[in-house]
């Protein structure tokens, strides 16, 4: 017979088993849905980031005339492009994560559905877009002479981003389903996050020592820097294990919170939504 009381955290894995085909199908439908109907269709995957890139570049490099925004050692444009590539994925996932359960309300509240797979679906669908963008960035960087052996460590940082965003969704989706205030709070913070996470200007420009060190604790900074270390700075990740360990500790805390919140709210979700 089946065990009387199954542990919720193991159910998260159990719900994925045998459901991968459906996860992929739902994720793929989601991507298609976003770009279908638009005349430019899939081109929006590139146009949207290009507009943002153009805007940030114009404001900071041209408008503020701040050539050293990326620090002394860097050319601004490749530095910005690499960071934004990471940021677009993270920011899309932060927003999508909060809205994940509301978005799939028609499945959660109306049918029997393995809810724990929804973070995976949302992550997959956003990652498809990210993969396209990343491929374009890699092509751009290789043509501008940035290729190096350190590119091989990029999958590490992509992987860490995926794990963190998955747990973020597991945490934020129930909270977003429960509270509209939480959704609004996250949306408001997003505007601030891009400016303080070292995406648009280097935190090394901060001259107050403690403030700079605090900003470096930001996991979003760590991930964006990871992309930059791999692609344009060519620093091996093991040269800065300190930062990696801090990030992993933050990830563990996030995961613990996510599991607790998900576990507490799982059975209420269908009633709340």
């Amino acid at each position: 017979m089946m065990p009387k009381q199954t542990d919720q955290s193991t159910q998260i894995f159990a719900e994925h088993a045998g459901f991968w085909r459906q996860i992929w199908h739902l994720a793929w439908m989601d991507v298609q849905k976003s770009y279908r109907g638009a005349v430019l269709g899939w081109l929006w995957v590139i146009i949207r980031p290009l507009i943002m890139l153009g805007f940030y570049w114009f404001i900071i490099a041209v408008g503020l005339h701040s050539d050293s925004a990326a620090g002394e050692k860097h050319q601004y444009l490749p530095w910005l492009i690499t960071g934004l590539c990471s940021w677009f994925f993270i920011s899309d996932m932060i927003n999508a994560g909060v809205g994940a359960f509301r978005k799939y309300k028609f499945l959660i509240a109306k049918t029997k559905f393995p809810v724990a797979t929804i973070p995976t679906i949302v992550l997959t669908s956003n990652f498809i877009v990210h993969a396209i963008l990343l491929a374009i960035v890699l092509i751009y960087l290789s043509f501008t002479g940035h290729f190096a052996l350190q590119w091989l460590q990029l999958p590490l940082y992509v992987g860490l981003t995926l794990v963190m965003m998955w747990f973020w969704t597991l945490l934020a989706a129930p909270l977003g389903a429960i509270s509209k205030d939480f959704t609004q709070l996250v949306k408001s913070l997003m505007r601030v996050l891009v400016w303080i996470s070292g995406i648009l200007w280097s935190v090394h420009n901060v001259h107050v020592h403690w403030l700079r060190e605090v900003m470096k604790l930001n996991p979003i900074y760590f991930l964006a820097e990871g992309y930059r270390k791999s692609l344009i700075d060519h620093h091996w990740f093991f040269k800065d294990l300190h930062g990696l360990i801090i990030f992993l500790a933050e990830l563990a805390i996030l995961a613990a919170f996510a599991l607790v919140i998900y576990k507490r709210s799982r059975k209420e979700l269908a009633d709340i939504l």
């Binding site: 129930p174 909270l175 429960i178 509270s179 509209k180 205030d181 939480f182 919140i261 507490r264 709210s265 209420e268 009633d271 709340i272």
Partner: peptide, 18 residues
């Protein structure tokens, strides 16, 4: 048994403190 929430704040409180 359905819990009857008056508002979002009660929902959030209930989720955090079952």
């Amino acid at each position: 048994v359905y819990k009857l929430y008056k508002n979002d704040r009660q929902k959030l409180a209930a989720a955090l403190m079952p």
